[in-house]
Write a protein that binds this DNA or RNA. Structure first.
Lengths: 345, 345
DNA sequence: ACGCACCCTGAAACCGGTTTCCCGTGCCGC
DNA sequence: GCGGCACGGGAAACCGGTTTCAGGGTGCGT
């Protein structure tokens, strides 16, 4: 005769029965949400252990109308800046017993919208968002449901969202000044998307440094993508008064820029000096090693998770906007121009 | 007088009431799970639209005892091979209306175990696992619950799990043969973790090629980590009969190996030729560009999601184990040895 | 001795969908 | 004309925890 016992997973009712208590008491004993006599608590814990009880998270979440899950929305997880950040977030969240749902927007606002809706439907506990637009389209629904949103990398125009960013403008300003200090007069800029905060801030950092030095800006837009940056860099290098140095606004665009420089047969830094925002692992492996403006990714990602947990644990009401400093790492790609020139154009 | 109306989100009961039907009918109309007269269906859809109804996914999942979520477990999302894979998986899953929960094991079996338990408690629909050990410890609980598991990159010793891998052994064999064909006689190998499938297979590919050529293997273990690989490469380069070529078993270890080569002041490929498994974006940016054995990451990731969806949709019972071919990309880091030597040691 | 407060505990409601079960109607075939 | 079957739709059970509510017991103060 075949074994006909039910083979469903053990539930809290099974635990309660075995311990001779009600499900309510079992729940309280297991969660420590209310005082249970040590006698009964011991019996419940024993029963749970003996039966190998594992609570069904779906039921818990339904009742609580909240999940211990952080929705993380980035433009592209394949970008090492994001994958490093997500790595650190996952570690930090996991230590606190939280999970990560990962979403890629591809910089598309419609995708961002639909992901935010999805995360709302899922009742995630919080969202960390690297927004595709300055408005952070779609966050309202979350915030109305009481789901906290933390802007990452890019600030959002909403007074209710916390933010963790770094000082892009000051950083790129310093990076540009560094090249100016080396004697460069024609400095190009391969920019990101000017419609998002990082893009705009980095551009402004470049512009302000050029303005302060009385130099004329040379800007091409690379959309934060390698291919577009390659085209942008090619355009810069094709200009009549070719730049003797180029600032690149992020790591993926540095790839494209390097390709364009190679293609043009130019030597770095003799023909053209290079400096980039972000410091991917390969920055010091290329020849010559790339001068980089590193974002404090670990600190930013840890801070983002910390802000999230503070919110969901009700430990904080005020909005916090952290701005972390960037770090300039000088390497050989940024040398002086071949012959320092007067601004003669 | 303040607005005192309830402000809770609209539920299916609200939709049903407005449409003048029962919640059951509303559910059926919205999901198309059963035939509903077009008259009523239209009314339900109108009501849902007018009220801006969004179903609460937690409730649905609780009832179904399943989530449209794929748990993805990798050793390290910051590894570009994984972040690229996860990127593609997310795209494919999202197109099918599925989400991704991301977990990093750091190659630790205990973390893998606890993540698998967590995913089981969460009743994910399926798991894609790049396992930290050959046994795939912890998958039993999932499989017993009827949650399909797809092994990614690394096969698992369990007859119930599908797998998507690439032909590591053949690939590395070919890569090694390429170096042998260039005239190298002392070829070192910076290996991964021999306890996981990819590590073992790549090592065996190297060994078999060396054996076939009658050459003596020179192996150091790099644990799939840059730091360990740097030490390993340093050891190889410090040996009496220094290798004139090195095969590296993945991209993170290529970073470490390159560092060691730089540190030793050796020219590539003149002093030492290099070739690596994986083809990260920077492989053609370093000088000289790295000869690489590329994994078909996109195809693998897409296949993994496809296998998952076939399972959860009940379209397939048989176990499938896909093995995709790798692609050898010859670049300048693999040249002939300075003076071809006889095996004189 | 009585009253009140507090602590534990269990019964039952609850979260919000989905699914089962059952009934009523209408059509078809004999 | 009647039995049976197919189909549409509603009531209620259900998923499995958590939380509210209320009651019983104990201890302390007066």
């Amino acid at each position: 005769m075949p074994d006909t016992r039910e083979d469903r997973p053990v539930g809290i009712r099974d635990v309660a029965t075995r311990a001779g208590v009600s499900p309510a008491t079992a729940s309280r004993a297991l969660n420590g949400t209310a005082t249970v006599s040590s006698e009964l608590r011991a019996r419940v814990l024993e029963a749970a252990g003996a039966l190998g009880y594992r609570p069904n998270n779906l039921a818990r979440s339904l009742r609580r109308q909240r999940t211990d899950t952080i929705g993380v929305i980035v433009s592209d997880i394949a970008n090492p800046h994001h994958s490093e950040a997500v790595r650190v977030m996952e570690d930090a969240a996991s230590r606190a017993g939280w999970r990560l749902i990962l979403c890629n927007t591809d910089e598309r606002v419609d995708k961002q919208r639909s992901y935010l809706e999805l995360l709302a439907d899922e009742r995630v506990g919080a969202v960390i968002l690297s927004a595709a637009d300055a408005a952070g389209s779609g966050t309202d629904a979350l915030l109305d449901l009481g789901i906290p949103v933390v802007a990452f990398d890019r600030v959002i125009d909403d007074p209710r969202v916390d933010a963790v960013t770094c000082d892009n403008q000051a950083g790129v300003h310093a990076l540009t000044e560094h090249l100016i200090g080396l004697g460069h007069l024609r400095i190009g800029f391969v920019g990101g998307r000017p419609r998002v905060a990082t893009g705009a801030e980095r551009l402004e950092g470049y512009r302000s440094a050029m303005r302060a030095a009385g130099l004329r800006p040379m800007v091409e837009d690379g959309e934060f993508r390698a291919d577009d940056a390659e085209v942008a860099a090619r355009r810069l290098l094709g200009r009549a008064g070719r730049p003797t140095a180029i600032v690149v606004a992020n790591n993926t665009m540095a790839v494209g820029t390097l390709r364009a420089v190679r293609e043009a047969g130019l030597a770095v830094p003799r023909d053209v000096a290079l400096a980039t925002v972000d410091d991917p692992v390969w920055a010091e492996l290329v020849d010559p090693p790339l001068t980089a403006l590193a974002q404090p990714v670990r600190a930013m990602a840890e801070a983002a998770v910390r802000l999230v947990l503070e919110r969901v644990n009700g430990k904080r009401q005020e909005v916090v906007r952290l701005v972390l400093p960037m770090e300039l790492r000088f390497r050989r790609s940024s040398g002086p121009p071949r012959r320092p020139l007067r601004a003669s154009m």
